[in-house]
Structure formats: structure tokens, C-alpha cells
Amino acid sequence: MKRITPKGKLVATLAMGVSTLLLTSGCGQLLVFHPAGPVGQSELQLIWLQIALTAVVIIPVLILLAIIVIRYRDRPGSKAVYRPDWSENRTLEIIWWVIPIIIVGILGTVTAKKTFALTQPPKNPSNPTVVQPLTIEVTSMDWKWLFQYPNQQIATVNYCVIPTNRPVQFMLTSNGPMNAFWVPQLGGMEYTMPGMIMRLWLQADKPGIYYGHGGNFTGQGFAQMQFNVQAESEQQFNAWVASIANNSPQLTQGEYDKMAQPSILGQMSFSSFPPNAFENVVMSEGGKYMKHDQVMMNSISSK
């Protein structure tokens, strides 16, 4: 590789590019517009509302721009009106101070409601029975994702399995630089930060494998920080938990410490994890001083 000049690289790249374009077909899916759960759904509703309301302003602007430029262009013998001193019209000005204010008012109200709603577990009108949420502790490391199931006592790397139709409480932290946890089809992202527990409610309504990726740059291995969230029915989920608990190796403290060092790993499963691994990361150093709310601390200590 070292012998190739930059120019050679460029030519090779372009040639490769064209051939790849010819070979690959189709596009990726617009994940944000195909939510698989109530959280993504709710966020998408806001996005549609935003699109509609901003279009109310954008489209007239573009049409007006075209008309005005064509009509009032300075050409010989132009018959268009020319009023060089016309520069005030109170009615018009009031109109376009008021219209944006109304739009912002509507969007602001909806945004406020949704922002507060998203701090609660998703409510599922089709499944009103109260379901016990599942808790998964997520730690971002250089450059992999560790998922710990505190109630199942298993752990996975770079993938996790969740039951469908059940709210999942992801508790996020970082053992390294800050990242962000994002599964576009399930819902929006939340940062993972050292010394903090961030909580993110997500829920999958249908089985599937959902793409997830780190959302905040963490260095050279960042591009490889991909993970999958696999949604399965409750029974399949339980079967999976059992098989991991029975068949997978244990995650010892030594291996955990090794994992915390920079490296890129594939998907892994473990039938155990070092006790309090997550809590230790959160409460180490700076984390002691952060405000961790009581409910969260109880849920950690109650395990």
C-alpha cells in the first residue's frame, strides 16, 4: 500500500467507485421514517408536523422569488412597475411577523408536550396491561458496546436482544470518551457519558434486527461502533436468555478490564459479568458528584 502515490490512490478510488455504483443496487432504508416502536413513532409525528408547517412558509417564498425575479428583471422596455421609494407597508410586515410567530407557537407547544412525554415509559394503547419494563445497562467503551442485563445476569457485546411490546429502559454510561446510543428505528439518541447514568426508554413493536451505532465521535475505532438490537417475542427472548446463561463463558473482572482497553470486537455473549461493573464505572471518580436520582439508585442497588 505504501508504494501507491496519492494520485494513484485517487484514480483507483474513482474507478472502484464507479464499478461499485454499477454493481450495488438500491438504497438503504430511511430508518427514521420507518419506526418500529412507539418512541420512534412519536418522534416521527413531530417531524411530519415540522415538515408541514415549515412548508407553509418555504413554498410561497420559493414561488414568490421566482415570480419576482422574472417579472422585475431589468431588461430594455420592461413594462413592470418600478417604485424606487416604496419601502414601507405595515400590513404586509405585520403579516410576516405574525405567521412565523403562530407557527413557532404551534411547534413549540407540541415539542414541549413530547419532550416531557418521552421521559416516561412508552404507553402502548394496543397493549394497555401494565408490563414490567426490562432494564439493560449499556456501557460504551473504546470501541465497543457492552450490554448488561442486571436481572438476567448475562452480558453481550455489540448486540442485544429485547422482547417485543415491552418497554425497555436503557441505562447508559461510558467507560471512556462520551458516545451516544442510537437505534434510529426504535427512537432517538442519548449520550453515554462517564460518571453519569442517562436513561432512554425504547420499545419495539415488531420483531426484527435493528441497526444501532454510536452517535458521538470517540476516536479511531468510532466507525466500527455498530451494534444490533434484536427484537424477539417474549418466549424467544426468554429462551435466548436461558441459552446464554447456560452456554456462554463468564465475563471475569480481568476480561472486563481488558475489554475496556481500546480495541474493536465482534459480537460476544457472556453468562455473567463482574458484580457491580456498571455501578463502579458510573460511580468512579467524577461520577460520585453527579446527581443520580433516587429511583435510579434504588433500581441499581435493589438487584
Partner: peptide, 8 residues
Amino acid sequence: AGAPADYQ
């Protein structure tokens, strides 16, 4: 600017 949309 809408926070919930921004999450995405």
C-alpha cells in the same frame, strides 16, 4: 430545534 426530533 424540536428536541424530540433532534434526538433522531
